[in-house]
């Protein structure tokens, strides 16, 4: 096999200076790649739930690495340990780096009951992090048009399938790796007067996270 016995020659990837993260590729390059990923995964599954799970898994792998990368580069090797801290890290830092903008203020969809006051006060520009009042452990991230859904139209027979599952996976990857296990799902929420529904990413934290949060006061 080519390459065997050459391992010593490699510059260790950790020896390389960390890039500033300013490099870009064209949106189409990403869209083409993402489309291939979805198409490939379609060949590996029997149903929509499985397809979403596979996209979520792929996203999870991205999220885990994004957390590591951004904590190192943007946060001076520190990571958030409190619930609101990590949520704001997700919707401001992570979103800004990955999708080029922090989240915008969104109006409530059917899932959303109340805007979380502390958060929206603090980041007027950058917010659409909302909390469902029915359940203490649920938070939502809502976006008008998710980057990954830009060029996607869902065939009728695929029902509620949402490619945002990939982004939900990224969010879960970040949260889980930071010690905030959660179930994260992506949903379409129709908006009145608009052709395309917005995507809401629903975060439901595990019980232990809320217990710890209560203990910390």
């Amino acid at each position: 096999m080519i390459g065997v016995g050459k391992i010593k020659q490699y510059t260790n990837v950790l020896d390389k200076p960390l890039s500033k993260g300013k490099q870009e590729v064209s949106l189409s390059a990403f869209a083409f790649l993402f489309s291939e990923m979805v198409q490939y995964n379609q060949t590996q599954v029997d149903n929509i739930a499985e397809l979403e799970r596979r996209l979520e898994d792929a996203g999870y792998a991205v999220g885990a690495r994004v957390l590591e990368l951004l904590c190192h580069r943007e946060k001076g090797n520190r990571r958030e340990t409190r619930l609101l801290g990590i949520l704001s890290f997700v919707h401001s830092t992570v979103w800004k780096v990955l999708f080029g903008k922090a989240l915008e203020i969104g109006c409530g969809g059917t899932l959303v009951r109340r805007v979380l006051m502390e958060e929206s006060d603090r980041c007027q520009v950058a917010d659409s992090l909302e909390k469902g009042t029915e359940h203490e452990d649920e938070y939502m991230i809502s976006e008008k048009e998710l980057l990954v859904n830009r060029f996607i139209s869902i065939p009728k027979d695929m029902g509620t399938f949402n490619c945002g599952a990939f982004v939900a996976g990224i969010v879960r990857g970040v949260l889980d790796s930071a010690g905030f296990p959660a179930v994260v799902t992506a949903h379409f929420v129709p908006v009145e007067g608009q052709l395309r529904p917005r995507t809401t990413i629903l975060i439901k934290f595990a019980e232990e996270v809320l217990r710890r949060e209560a203990r910390l006061g």
């Binding site: 993260g21 064209s26 990403f30 898994d57 792929a58 792998a61 991205v62 690495r65 999708f99 080029g100």
Partner: peptide, 23 residues
Amino acid sequence: FASVERVNAELFTLTYGAIVRQL
């Protein structure tokens, strides 16, 4: 390149990595 819409290269890199890992 200056005129087209662009995305962060790290998102692209990590997504590609996720694909390879899946494969």
